[in-house]
Amino acid sequence: MLKIAVVILNWNGEKLLEQFLPSVQAHSKGAEIYVADNASTDNSISFIKNNYPSIQIVQNTTNGGFAKGYNDALVHIDADIYCLLNSDVEVTENWLTPIRNIFKKDYEVAIVQPKILDYKQKDYFEYAGAAGGFIDQLGYPFCRGRIFQALEKDKGQYNDVKEIFWATGACMFIKKTVFNELKGFDEDYFAHQEEVDLCWRAKNHGHKVMYVGSSKIYHLGGSTLSNMNPKKTYLNFRNSLYSIAKNLPRKKAFPIIFIRLLLDGVAGIRFIFQGKLNHCLAILKAHLSFYKNFNKIFKKREKAKYMPNYYAAKSIVWSHFVYHIRKFNILVKD
């Protein structure tokens, strides 16, 4: 039987642990549960020890964000499969069974994501991951069930098992051997889109990333940084450029980076007209950080198999903002 470790990264999340740990403990039979604590200053650790003595704690010495937090913690955890689970997730009965089955069925499967629904509106998909992630030909990430801020209602349209491009960090199952092969998350990302980069690298190494719609969870979302936070804008814009520079062949990477920088400028102007000057400044800071760190990031490129057809759509920006496409099945025809 595959040994699964459910690992919840926590930073000052006592209230979230109090709310969401009960479902994880109740429905994760056969798995070991860990809380990887990123040097919290609240009562998270004492709360776990007093109320959930069976849950194991890995104490990180610093708050290195999502990427470093998991990299530091997972070296101390022995399992065949890591389940990286956000602290604001409610899991459902038997949610692990379909995940175990797909890992057993197909050896090439390295990463798996369940269906991600909104905790507040449980019949709608949730922003972070929805029904599996893809990217367009310019490297913009999007999901089945979510295109930018447009969320679809769950009507069973994505109850399938499907190969995807990236799995969300809100709930990602990954083989320990593959995580180690890829040397974990890129800590220069700190947080946001590090899972896109990890899955992209896994793809470049010939591994499969899968979505399993028969396993579902409910994600609260926005508990660390909301979509209205300029820091999230900064990280998303910068880290997306990082991924393109690292993971595409040179002939594709440089033209796409140039186009993306121009489109980011358009996005900045749009933020100004919306009265969101802080978000425009966040894009500017993201570009400055990208220029500053370009050589460092570019040197991380690996000699691996680049995916010849890595994208699911030509331009998600054009399709969404010009043609007003809101649903994946209209945008992408199987």
Rank of each mutant, 00 (worst) to 15 (best):
Leu2His: 08
Phe47Trp: 10
Gly30Trp: 08
Gly64Phe: 10
Lys303Gly: 08
Gln121Val: 10
Tyr323Cys: 07
Phe271His: 13
Asn51Gln: 10
Arg326Gln: 14
Val209Leu: 01
Ile147Gln: 01
Ile45Lys: 09
Gln59Met: 13
Asn180Gln: 13
Leu284Asp: 03
Ile8Thr: 13
Tyr311Cys: 05
Val75Cys: 08
Val112Asp: 00
Lys176Ala: 03
Ala110Asp: 00
Ile217Trp: 02
Thr224Cys: 09
Gly169Ser: 09
Leu21Trp: 07
Asp42Gly: 09
Phe148Gly: 05
Glu108Phe: 07
Val161Asn: 08
Ala191Leu: 14
Glu187Gly: 08
Ser243Leu: 02
Ile259Cys: 04
Asn278Met: 09
Phe148Pro: 07
Glu93Ser: 12
Ser289Ala: 15
Val266Glu: 09
Lys333Cys: 06
Asn101Cys: 06
Ile4Asn: 07
Val112Trp: 00
Ser54Phe: 11
Leu151Pro: 04
Ala36Glu: 04
Asn60Cys: 12
His207Ile: 00
Ile33Gln: 07
Tyr218Phe: 15
Ser319Gln: 10
Asn94Cys: 08
Phe185Leu: 02
Ser28Met: 09
Gln121Met: 09
Asp188Leu: 14
Ser40Gln: 04
Met210Ser: 02
Asp72Glu: 13
Ser315Arg: 05
Ser240Gly: 14
Leu198Asn: 00
Tyr158Phe: 15
Lys232Ala: 11
Leu284Thr: 10
Gly169Val: 09
Gln137Tyr: 06
Asp88Met: 10
Leu96Ala: 06
Gly64Pro: 14
Lys175Leu: 01
Asp78Arg: 10
Met228Pro: 01
Val322Tyr: 10
Leu9Pro: 14
Val89Ser: 06
Ile330Cys: 08
Asp136Gly: 02
Cys83His: 05
Trp318Phe: 14
Asp334Tyr: 08
Lys292Gly: 05
Ile259Gly: 00
Leu331Ser: 02
Gly132Trp: 02
Lys68Ile: 09
Leu225Ala: 12
Ala130Pro: 06
Ser226Glu: 12
Pro308Gly: 02
Leu261Phe: 08
Phe321Gln: 05
Ile45Asp: 02
Asp123His: 12
Tyr211His: 08
Gly206Tyr: 03
Lys296Glu: 13
Leu9Lys: 10
Cys143His: 15
Phe258Gln: 15
Lys162Phe: 06
Tyr311His: 13
Arg238Thr: 04
Asn71Trp: 07
Ile164Tyr: 01
Phe273Met: 08
Ile81Cys: 04
Ala191Lys: 11
Glu181Phe: 02
Leu261Pro: 07
Lys292Ser: 14
Ile99Thr: 07
Gly184Gln: 03
Ile45Tyr: 02
Ser23Thr: 15
Leu85His: 05
Gly268Phe: 05
Phe165Asp: 00
Val35Met: 08
Gln157Leu: 11
Thr168Leu: 04
His320Ile: 09
Gly156Tyr: 10
Ala31Cys: 11
Asn295Gln: 14
Arg326Ile: 11
Asp78Met: 06
Asp42Met: 06
Ala245Glu: 01
Cys199His: 00
Ile174Trp: 00
Leu151Arg: 15
Glu108Ala: 14
Ile217Thr: 12
Lys29Phe: 07
His207Ala: 01
Ile174Gly: 00
Pro22Tyr: 11
Asn50Trp: 03
